[in-house]
């Protein structure tokens, strides 16, 4: 989901070829501004269309922007909004951190060792194909309704996306560079630190981005079905009361949060980690 955001020339920034070559700096800036304006225009048009069409329907079918805004201010005033957002970000952040911390060494191990690959294949295929609903049912049976259940399901449901990227990145490591390091008597730890990990970083970032998108979906889904705290649970409560404007409110809140994570966290980290690929 977060992987879909952003204007085309920026999205694939994980490969060197996707970095646009230097063009006239001011011309480039003017083009960026023009494109930004177009995106803004589309937002305004959609908003106006929403405001014009919604009043023709009952509020529980298609709430107006004003209904949704009222629902938002109410949730913020009652402290529900911040509380629930924190709960969901807690689930998501914990699961994402576990995936990254466990997935990077695991992925490198599987990518480098045929034995590890063969041994892990069944597990990988299982997690890749098992329906999230089944994971949720299993989590309910094991942990009951709890934060651990939501986090566990999110980890189990999203880690393969990350692993597959890291494995691919490990396989794509330039053997020549490893041989070079070996010829200069670098030991295995040094090779890992100076050659392997930096090589995997673009794949790490691509995998992290896909994983984050998937993890958002699974977290909300689990919250909805398991009835623990969080945005998903609140959507469930709201729709059972036919409070559609609150459902809209949470939907738009998630969109805003995703954008915030993407531009506030992901892009700056990515820019820092791939700075050697930029043309100056």
């Amino acid at each position: 989901m977060s992987s879909l955001i952003g204007s085309p020339p920026e999205t694939g920034a994980t490969t060197p070829t996707a970095v646009p070559a230097r063009q006239g700096l001011s011309a480039g800036r003017a083009r960026t501004a023009r494109r930004g304006l177009r995106v803004l225009a589309a937002v305004v048009v959609l908003g106006v269309a929403w405001a014009l069409i919604a009043p023709n329907y009952p509020s529980f079918v298609f709430p107006t922007p004003a209904d949704v805004w009222a629902s938002f201010t109410r949730a913020v005033e009652r402290g529900v909004w911040v509380e629930q957002v924190i709960a969901t970000l807690g689930h998501l952040g914990s699961a994402f951190a576990i995936v990254l911390v466990a997935g990077l060494p695991l992925g490198i191990l599987i990518g480098r060792s045929i034995i590890a690959e063969d041994l892990s294949r069944v597990v990988l295929v299982f997690f890749q194909t098992v329906p999230t609903v089944v994971l949720i049912a299993l989590a309910l049976a094991i942990y009951g309704i709890s934060d651990e259940s939501v986090i566990g399901v999110t980890v189990a449901g999203s880690i393969t996306y990350f692993l597959l990227n890291v494995i691919q990145g490990t396989r794509a490591i330039d053997r020549d560079l490893v041989d070079m390091a070996r010829a200069y008597h670098a030991n295995e730890t040094t090779i890992m630190r100076t050659v392997v990990v930096p090589s995997v970083i673009p794949y790490f970032l691509a995998g992290a981005r896909i994983t984050l998108g998937v993890a958002w979906q699974i977290t909300l889904f689990s919250e909805y079905l398991m009835g623990s705290a969080g945005i998903g649970f609140n959507v469930n409560t709201a729709i059972s009361l036919l409070d559609t404007s609150t459902v809209f409110m949470w939907g738009l809140s998630v969109v805003a949060l995703t954008l915030l994570v993407e531009y506030g966290l992901f892009r700056p980290v990515e820019r820092r980690l791939t700075r050697h690929m930029r043309r100056t």
């Binding site: 060197p16 020549d176 560079l177 041989d179 070079m180 390091a181 200069y184 008597h185 670098a186 040094t190 100076t194 050659v195 930096p198 970083i201 050697h276 690929m277």
Partner: peptide
């Protein structure tokens, strides 16, 4: 082929051999 580490600048690439001793 040069086999330089793409994520290191020239100075750091030359330092690579020295770091190992």
């Amino acid at each position: 082929n040069p086999r330089l580490l793409p994520w290191r600048d020239v100075q750091a690439n030359v330092e690579f051999s020295l770091e190992q001793i």
